[in-house]
């Protein structure tokens, strides 16, 4: 089961994302932003975090128009799983695959800290058997992480529990499209897959990917 991890210039988390994908028993492969097609046999896509195109213009704006995005849009239409993490979430919103947009944090500062996330909807394929109301501990690290939009336009999967670190509407930390196959989140599950690093709660999302493929 092949999962394409997309690399744009300025993508930073592709290696940790690929590691997390492999950890869930899937086969990661890299796809390059300038390519016209995803690698043959791609069944799912992960768009990892970073600063694609240096956040020039607007986070995710330029990447959302990169050549590789057309094949991702096609795959998403076929209801294949597409996961966007942090900058990947920003790219998915910019590309129209997900509702809303990400604006700068309420503090106007970059924030890197562990966050508690409440599973808001366990009927999407993204929570891997974790029940609604369960709490996941996953780090956030972003400058433009305040999701703004109509939560009813998609399916809110994860909400910040306790303090809302960035001022997002309805405390949205992660949201899926109406069909449920495309999901974006600001927290970094790929950095919460190893007890040595403090949390393994991020594995749920990658297991979900394995279950969905």
């Amino acid at each position: 089961m092949s999962v394409a991890v997309i690399r744009f210039p300025g993508t930073l988390d592709h290696e940790s994302a690929a590691r997390a994908v492999a950890g869930a028993g899937l086969e990661p492969c890299y796809a390059w932003h300038a390519d016209d097609a995803l690698p043959v046999g791609t069944e799912a896509v992960v768009i990892p975090g970073g600063f694609s195109y240096g956040d020039h213009l607007r986070s995710g704006a330029i990447a959302s128009r990169a050549p590789i995005m057309e094949s991702i849009l096609e795959l998403a239409e076929q209801e294949a799983p597409v996961l966007g993490i942090c900058n990947g979430f920003q790219i998915l919103c910019e590309s129209g695959l997900l509702p809303g947009a990400l604006r700068p944090n309420a503090s106007l500062s970059f924030i890197c800290r562990q966050a508690e996330l409440e599973v808001a909807d366990d009927t999407t394929p993204w929570t891997g058997g974790v029940d609604a109301g369960a709490v996941l501990s996953i780090p956030i690290k972003h400058h433009d992480g305040a999701w703004v939009g109509d939560p009813g336009a998609g399916r809110v999967v994860l909400r910040y529990r306790g303090e809302n670190p960035n001022g997002s509407v309805d405390a949205v930390a992660g949201i899926a499209n109406a069909a449920g196959n495309v999901m974006g989140l600001m927290p970094h599950p790929e950095e919460a897959c190893d007890a040595l690093l403090g949390s393994t709660d991020g594995r749920a999302l990658f297991s979900a990917l394995a279950g969905a493929v």
Binding site: L12, D13, E15, S16, R19, S109, I111, C112, P139, E191
Partner: peptide, 9 residues
Amino acid sequence: EQYDHLVGA
């Protein structure tokens, strides 16, 4: 907290 101290996992 203004620094990404985690990237690279």
